[in-house]
Design a protein around this nucleic acid. Structure first.
Length: 302
DNA sequence: GCCCAGGAAATAT
DNA sequence: ATATTTCATGGG
């Protein structure tokens, strides 16, 4: 096992683990106290996730992190590049101060950024992120997290670490072996066939969400829309929370209400046109960062 | 019971 | 192309 600490003061703009991992952008992390998304900030709890080993080792790696005494502590079963993995997953090398500085001076954005200092975007693995947001349709964030956790527990590879059993998110092949009826029994409802069919597409080699990374932004969004259960909004979430498209602004219910209340001129009818307008309103390059802060700010009312 | 939740697909106009 | 309808399900 590898471990280390990183002083939060060394991270430009700081780090708030609770905001980063419980603001509804990732559903692939859990908390060792078993709670998550109940609106209460934990006191020094470990957050964990399980990632595929970068090398040829078939065993997935557990990564866990917590903040204690002003430092980010990390531990992982990963060998080489362990700290690099943590830095990538939590985007610790992002300069949050530069992100805020590059964002337009706007009352709503200023309030959102000011209220939730230290919230960073995450970089989730592409397949797990894709399935997470297929499941997100018409669901509350707490239920999305429990659905994704259940799917991992039922179909993902188990990994032992520090006396506990963790589960990787299932591979495309593992999830493609599930049946629609099984997933309905796990509470996925009408999303069940979407998940199975998308997993089959990836497992069969027809397409892979990670391939969108090499495309131009709007082409990447169109590419992701070929998966069953994926429309423009879910595609934007995968681009933003997994594939490094910081300009992506998912138009969910909260952002649409923000457009209605604060930026009515950005409502251009179609998703593509409205998306372009609000992306410009939010400063372009880091518009997705602004989106994530506004989403959390409006959704929690804090 | 009623309403809503990080929407998408099928269908109708 | 754009507008309406349908689809599950737990929690308030």
């Amino acid at each position: 096992m590898e471990r280390g600490t990183i002083p939060v003061s060394e991270l430009p703009g700081g780090l708030d683990l609770y905001l980063t991992l419980e603001s509804g952008q990732t559903y692939l992390w859990g908390r060792d106290d078993g709670r998550m998304y109940d609106g209460e900030r934990p006191d020094g709890a470990w957050y964990y996730t399980v990632v595929d080993d970068a090398s040829s080792d078939p065993d997935p790696d557990v990564v866990r992190v917590r903040v204690q005494d002003g430092s980010l502590e990390w531990e992982t079963t990963a060998g080489a590049d362990a700290e690099e993995t943590v830095r990538r997953l939590l985007r610790l090398d992002d300069d949050l101060e530069a992100v805020v500085a590059a964002t337009p001076d706007d009352p709503l954005l200023a309030e959102a950024y000011d209220t939730h200092r230290g919230l960073r975007l995450v970089e989730d693995p592409a397949f797990g992120c894709l399935i997470s947001f297929i499941c997100s349709a018409q669901m509350r964030v707490s239920r999305i997290h429990s659905m994704v956790s259940t799917v991992a527990r039922e179909y993902g590879t188990p990994v032992e670490f520090d006396g506990r059993t963790y589960h990787a998110f299932p591979t495309p092949a593992q999830l493609a072996a599930a049946t629609e009826d099984e997933l309905r029994e796990l509470g996925l409802g009408y999303r069940a066939p979407y998940v199975v069919r998308t997993a089959e597409m990836v497992a069969d080699g027809d397409a892979h969400p990670a391939e969108a990374r090499d495309l131009a932004y709007e082409e990447a969004r169109d590419y992701l829309c070929q998966f069953v259960g994926v429309g423009d909004k879910v595609a934007d979430c995968v681009l933003l929370f997994s594939l490094g498209f910081d300009q992506a602004v998912p138009l969910d219910t909260w952002i649409r209400s923000a457009i209605e209340d604060y930026y009515p001129d950005c409502d251009c009818g179609s998703y593509a046109a409205t998306s372009r307008a609000i992306r410009e309103q939010f400063g372009g390059e880091y518009a997705g960062y602004a989106q994530t802060y506004v989403f959390h700010h409006l959704r929690t009312g804090e």
